[in-house]
Design a protein around this nucleic acid. Sequence first.
DNA 1: GGTTGTAGTTGAACGTGTTCAAATGCGTTG
DNA 2: CAACGCATTTGAACACGTTCAACTACAACC
Lengths: 223, 223
Amino acid sequence: MPQKAIAKSAETRARILEAALRTFRERGFEGATMREIAAAAGMATGAAYYYFESKEAIVMAFYQRAQEEMGPGVEESLARSRTLEARVRGIITAKLEYFLPNRPLMSALTAHVDPTHPLSPFSEQTQPIREHDLAHFERAVGESQLRLPKNIAPYLPRLLWLYQMGVLLFWVYDRSRDQQRTAVLLEKTLKMIVIGVRMAGLPFLRPVHRLAGELLETLYGKA
Amino acid sequence: MPQKAIAKSAETRARILEAALRTFRERGFEGATMREIAAAAGMATGAAYYYFESKEAIVMAFYQRAQEEMGPGVEESLARSRTLEARVRGIITAKLEYFLPNRPLMSALTAHVDPTHPLSPFSEQTQPIREHDLAHFERAVGESQLRLPKNIAPYLPRLLWLYQMGVLLFWVYDRSRDQQRTAVLLEKTLKMIVIGVRMAGLPFLRPVHRLAGELLETLYGKA
DNA sequence: GGTTGTAGTTGAACGTGTTCAAATGCGTTG
DNA sequence: CAACGCATTTGAACACGTTCAACTACAACC
């Protein structure tokens, strides 16, 4: 396939994605039909399936594009702040701000906890996406000097990633005005995390370290 | 409607539930069709919808029945143990054991995080079920003397309920042999919870109490 | 410039959960 | 016992996501 055709193919794909996002915003994810989306993109129903495996896969494509577009913003935010708290806050708020116009749509992604479902945030298929996100937290942790017990430290980025998933999930369904409850959740828990990390060095917490370390090793495998 | 008719109606409902569970076990939740379930119950497709709002509502009915049937077992377990750890463990393991034969089916219930979805564990519609479950943890907490900060204590049962939901969720998708990973998760986290509760009285943890208290108040409302 | 292969496109068809107007029972009433 | 009313039952119809065999367009090749 020549360059030109590749470009055209990518353009068609993008056109469907655009039409889908428009339709999702108007009718919601459930309310929008594939027939309608395809029509809005100026093509027959089946065509959409040539470019996307499923209706939900369109949302995943949106998330993937978001990841790319958010990259620079996150980089900048990381460069601007030194403390773990500020860095993690930066990553999460950047994400939430980006997704804000399509907030209800995100429920289509967070809906799948089943790790065998292709679109679950925990599935094999989404591993590349997950690792891309994880990299942010690795950078956030890596360049700040923390005194964490050796048996926990390797898991901190993954724990923070999980934490961020939780915040995102809460945010998606947060019905308070301007998602103020999410703001509170984020601020308070960030502070608690910071205190927790700071206290992690204290020797009398050894029993907790041991338990946490063993647990993490079981769940994530030796690290 | 006379007594006899009520009994017959309940019996038909039960027959559909039985047929559904049989079919779910054979084909899985997705694989089982309403047509098949209705046929297995010896009736037309539409009849099932006279008794159940949806396919998923059948699973919810199963959960509801489970709650009733598990009641005595949980009571007994609570009567047998004194420490918070043993009590919470008792409640959770009783549940997991009960659900074991239909474990894959539970994914149909844990699938909905959306609190606006009628079948979400967080929805308005499931509030009675939730409060029934909550009562177990209130009993588990109530009769053990704990020294918890006043601003956190009222929320402990709800926090434990949430914890139990997490364990259940993990268990449903746990692919390790005999769900051994869940066993590890449960044991380690239980011990961490106990240590956490014990340490909660220490004065230098005041900042954490304050944060936690404020957060819980925002999320659950004044208590 | 014709031929051929492949990327892209079409819309009907499939199987699903769910709805619903109509039919059927069945206990109660006059 | 006939007539009524209501709970129950029926199965066709609907709308949806998805599949697919057939068709089209276009670039590469001889």
